[in-house]
Structure formats: structure tokens, C-alpha cells
Design a protein around this nucleic acid. Structure first.
Lengths: 133, 133
DNA sequence: CGGGATCCGGCTTGATACTG
DNA sequence: CAGTATCAAGCCGGATCCCG
């Protein structure tokens, strides 16, 4: 049972200073994860993505895409036409990461019944122990 | 190429109202992901976890653990001794989720060199196009 | 030790409006 | 269409004090 820090890996996300933590946050962040998940299906334009990722604002989507592009996970293809047309797609690296991410997402989705049950039990237990609030 | 919404899955994280989105955020959140990752190694006490998850405050760790416990991913074992001793460990469901999560984390860690390269290229390209700032 | 309660600053976020 | 700029609100997260 060694701590990750003791292993001296080149990049250890458990360490506060490690740059991999920032990238992990881009990937797993609220909009980052959904954006990568959506892009796994193919190439999309800005507003197409906005519709797929239900609830994201223009600003956050733009910001998210820039972060993912900077990390080399997303490729941005802008054609200087009028009106402008910009397509986003995953890079090979992005595909790899998004694949793992989707495995996680599908795992959570598939076990949601268990999660909902657990929540219910948790809330029941707390409600009965604090009756007179 | 159907949108997730069109498939009428029982739980679709891409939909704004779906409860799975909340759970996904607990799992992938800044501290949630690191906490689950740390607990994958075994059972830990509160302050042991704090040391493993570098940078987390008492409040956030406590908050994170409660959310994960409520979702049925973490089991909390509190012994009413003095001083109190509380151990945290993954449930079977938590283990499953944490496994996928770790696959993602290790994937990102392992490709950090590529990410760093991409960032450097991205910053170079932007710096040269905006010379006089 | 293992937290809960409170206060508070600041970064994140979301509308809205504007640009090319 | 594809964003950027601006601004206000709100939530996140840290510090502190407290209790069992």
C-alpha cells in the first residue's frame, strides 16, 4: 500500500502542483465531460454542440472548447467563409480520453437505479434521526 | 448518428434534468475524483485521506465524502469510541465507478507529455498572432 | 480525532448585448 | 453562424471557532 507520491511517477494527479490535475479538471469538469462525450459521436459545429450539451451557455462552451483544444484533445477547423463555419472534432488523443470517459459515464448511467436507492435510504436515515427541525 | 435524447434512455446525462448528471459531477468533480481514486487503494481515516488528496480542506473533504456516501459509492464506518475513529471505504458500486475513473486518470497522466506539447504549440501560435499586447 | 456552523472573498457562471 | 465583452449573482472553497 504505497501512496502515489511515494512512487515518484512522472505525473501524479494526487499532487497539488501536478499539471495533470488541471487537464483532468478540463476533462472531467461539468461541461468538459459532456462536450467530450458529445464529440465522441463525430464532428459538430458550435451550435450543434450547444444543442447536444443541454444547458451549456455560449460562453461556457466556447471556454470549454478552448481549454480542450489547448490540451490537444479537440481539433478546431475554422473555414473563413461567410457566414463562418467552424467544426470541432476529437483528436486521436481526445478519442482515447473520451473513450475512458464514456465508459465512466455509461457506468454511472447504468447504475443510477442503485444510486437513487442509496440516496433514498440515506435521506430516510437522516430524516428519522432529526425529527423536530 | 442519433442524439442521446432521441434514444430515450432511462438515464441520459446529456439531458439537463437527468439526475445522473448530478452523480457524475460528484464523481468527476475536483475533489470527488481524487477522493474516489485514493479510496481505491483501501480503507482510510479522515485525516489519512486529507493527506493523500493533496490540497483538500477539511470542509471540502467532508462535503465530498457525504455526497459520495449519499450516492452509495462510499461506506462510512464510525466507531463511537473516544477519540472517535471513522473509516471510509468504497462500496462495490463505488469500486466499479472508481475503476473506470482510474482508467481515465491514468490515461491522462500517461499522455501528459502530449498534452504539454499541444499546449506549448497552442500558446506559440497565439503569441505570434497577437504581437503588440 | 472527526467533523459541524459560520463568515466572507473571489472565481465561476449565466444573461445580455455586441461584433465580424 | 460563431463567437467576444460586460456585468451581476451565486456558489465554491478557505479560515476560523466550536463541539463530542
Amino acid at each position: 500500500m504505497t501512496t502515489p507520491q511515494e512512487q515518484n511517477l512522472p505525473f501524479d494527479v494526487f499532487s497539488k502542483a501536478c499539471p495533470s490535475r488541471g487537464t483532468l479538471e478540463h476533462v472531467t469538469g461539468r461541461w468538459g465531460s459532456l462536450t467530450l462525450g458529445a464529440l465522441y459521436e463525430g464532428s459538430f459545429r458550435f451550435n450543434e454542440l450547444r444543442r447536444r450539451v443541454d444547458g451549456v451557455s455560449e460562453k461556457m462552451l466556447s471556454q470549454t472548447l478552448q481549454a480542450l483544444e489547448r490540451d490537444g484533445l479537440v481539433h478546431r477547423d475554422a473555414q473563413p467563409t461567410n457566414p463562418p463555419r467552424v467544426d470541432y472534432e476529437l483528436t486521436p488523443l481526445g478519442r482515447e480520453v473520451a473513450g475512458r470517459l464514456l465508459a465512466l459515464i455509461h457506468c454511472v448511467e447504468g447504475r443510477m437505479d442503485d444510486v437513487l436507492d442509496a440516496r433514498h435510504r440515506y435521506d430516510q436515515a437522516r430524516a428519522s434521526s432529526a425529527p423536530g427541525l
